[in-house]
């Protein structure tokens, strides 16, 4: 299989988040970046698909400023065969339509059998990339993928539904799959993998050279919600206080 894996670099989940002075993005100076969690599962799944089906190529595709080289090299160290870096200058595009267009422009000429992406990014969480790319490249598309099985020119996938239910769907190739975290055991890079990564190709493409169209949505303002703690002491006779408690649970907290 020839598989593209879309990976994104996001702020580490343990990094304290602050806003920049303009209030339209986070302060990148205090953030340690890492590979988006579900993307690392997508990468692992791509490698496992090829290991099971007897070979192929895994290409890591990443859009972002220079700092994303770190996760590109991580992907190569783990076993991706080569990479495409779509270079941006600022902190990165945030319109999911433009992101999907740029990515599909970057990969369409390569005629991949599969495009794997993480279900959603841990920073913006739009969850649209895999679906939009499927449409743009004319691929069958599945989301919330929990397992994969190649069957000749089809791929059978297990999708996670609500309330513990699953659905098996068979899609024709080529296909775009949005991968759910936890479907496999992500490997660690080996020492030899890290050494070998240096010799692998990273093709750098300027985002401005790809026809992504104009952003129709942008972030104008971020704010951190104020955590407010409020304690109400309910006093009085048991009957009355139970009545008040039920009212709070029903109308204010809406848990009943």
């Amino acid at each position: 299989m020839k598989i593209a894996v879309l990976i994104k670099q996001v702020p580490g989940s343990d990094s304290p988040l602050r806003l920049n002075p303009a209030g339209d993005w986070i302060d990148e100076n205090v953030v340690a970046y890492e590979m988006n969690e579900s993307d690392s599962y997508a990468l692992e799944e791509a490698m496992q698909i090829n290991e099971r089906s007897g070979g192929g190529e895994v290409v890591a595709v990443c859009m972002g400023p220079d700092r994303v080289q770190k996760i590109i090299r991580e992907a190569l160290a783990k076993g991706a065969d080569r990479a495409i870096h779509i270079k941006e200058n600022d902190h990165g595009e945030t319109d999911p339509l433009v992101i999907a267009k740029v990515l599909s422009e970057a990969v369409k000429s390569e005629e991949f059998d599969l495009v794997l992406s993480g279900l959603q990014s841990d920073d913006l969480g739009m969850g649209q990339t895999g679906v939009l790319i499927g449409e743009m490249l004319g691929m069958a598309t599945a989301t919330l993928v929990m397992a994969t099985e190649i069957q000749d020119r089809n791929i059978k996938v297990k999708r996670e539904l609500e309330a513990g239910w699953f659905q098996w769907v068979t899609l024709p190739l080529p296909a775009s799959l949005a991968i759910q975290s936890g479907l496999n055991q992500v490997r660690y890079p080996s020492l030899k993998g890290i050494m070998g990564a240096k010799k692998k190709e990273i093709k750098v493409v300027e985002k401005s050279d790809l026809n992504g169209g104009d952003s129709k949505q942008s972030l104008t303002n971020l704010h951190i919600p104020k955590a407010e703690k409020r304690t109400e002491m309910i006093s009085g006779e048991a009957d009355q206080s139970v009545g008040r408690l039920v009212e709070v649970l029903k109308s204010e907290l809406r848990v009943l």
Binding site: N29, A32, Y188
Partner: peptide, 10 residues
Amino acid sequence: EGGDGPAWVN
């Protein structure tokens, strides 16, 4: 385990 610990930036 490898990689554990602080994630200091600056």
